[in-house]
Computed example of a mutant assay.
Amino acid sequence: MNAYCEARPVLFQPTERADISRLLTCEGEEQQALFQAARAARQAAGMDAVKLRGVIELSNYCQKTCDYCAIRPQNKEMIRYRMDVDTILAITAEIVAEGITTVFLQSGQDPKSDAMVLEAIRRIRQADVNVLLNLGEKSRATYARYVEAGADSYILKFETSDPVLYQNIVGTPLAKRLECARWIQDVGMKLGTGNIIGLPGQTLDTLVDDILLAQELQPDFVSSSPFIPNENTPLEHLGVGDLQLTLNSIAICRLLFPHALIPAVSALEKIKKGGQLMGLNAGANVLTINFTPKDFRDKYAIYSKERFVVSLDHAHATIAAAGLRPRQVANPVEVVSSYN
């Protein structure tokens, strides 16, 4: 058995490039030992309770031209929308009523939504829940305004640590992305970041560098997501990202960031039924439930038109199958009353 995957999993740490590279390609018994080590690290850190987030996809307008994403402005087939604050608050009430304590506002990089988002944050915070944002690259001042309004955390994935690959696929400098990530931390929000596995031109060395970059950023949340080919994009002809590489990356991140929130993303389930369960068994501890109404959700094609949409029932069944429990508020009714 791989010396890096053997007994005493709680003490196991991948500390060198060679360790990370070897673990990324673990298979069979070695891989199962890696997953066992990741679960042990999660348990030892007190992070076994699965965090539930309720996501609202509030706008599919975007400035970015990422080759993998269908909401890129070049996609003229996309029917665009932008929610208003009242719609967001109505959906928030549904999230809070389920006892979910994090409202996750996500959109394309849409500068015209900033004022609306600030108002939504202020009003959501009246319910005494956390507000997580994923809205793209903004100015430092805008991030600071989000904090003043009450936002707690922000996801800005770096996607790949390779600056040439990033420039080729995204069309903007990786350095700008990383500057924004540091601004998010500077203004006092928790940072979530991570990579996509399966981008064209990516190598094993690139994936090792991704993990090392995450270590450098020291995020509060970290993720690995498999690439999903998306209709009406330059990369629609590619295959999906490697599931086993993604699971191994999740497990390595758990060992390196034992106290982090690590999602089992919906793309895992898109690739393989039970994929999110596999993610939890590899050390993840977050599931994001989609509360976006269907008429909006169908237009938010960040993965594909046939993406897997995580329901509350699916999330609870997956958590139970993993032998874990959800982390929820004790009395959600009291939270809902904050809107009255």
Rank of each mutant, 00 (worst) to 15 (best):
L238G: 08
I56H: 00
C62M: 02
S107A: 15
N134W: 03
V10D: 09
N290H: 01
I100Q: 02
A37W: 08
A264P: 00
S249M: 12
M47P: 02
D220P: 09
C253I: 11
T203N: 02
E334K: 07
N168D: 12
H237K: 13
A115C: 10
G192W: 04
A315C: 11
E137K: 10
P234K: 01
R8P: 07
D210S: 12
A144Y: 02
Y303W: 00
I100N: 03
L247C: 03
I319P: 06
F227Y: 12
R80Y: 07
Q31N: 10
A315T: 04
A144Q: 06
I100G: 05
G283L: 09
L212E: 15
C62E: 05
K299L: 14
Y154F: 15
V222P: 04
T246W: 03
V336L: 15
L105Q: 00
Q215R: 13
S311A: 05
V286I: 00
I95K: 00
S338H: 15
G283W: 01
Q167S: 08
A141R: 03
L245A: 08
P332S: 03
L23D: 05
G279F: 08
V164Q: 13
G192R: 05
T172A: 14
A120K: 01
A315S: 13
S249D: 11
G279W: 11
S21K: 15
A260H: 01
P14C: 09
Q109G: 08
L174V: 06
Q109M: 10
A90Q: 15
L174F: 11
W183N: 02
G46Y: 04
Q215L: 15
F308K: 11
E231K: 15
C66Y: 01
T172D: 07
L24R: 10
S223L: 10
D186A: 04
L135F: 06
I79D: 14
F296I: 11
A3E: 12
L204K: 09
K157F: 12
L255S: 02
I79Y: 06
F296Y: 14
A38C: 10
R123Y: 01
V187I: 04
R325I: 14
T318R: 02
G239K: 09
K76Q: 11
D152T: 04
T92F: 07
I184R: 02
D48N: 05
P200H: 06
E269L: 11
R145Q: 14
D210C: 14
K299W: 05
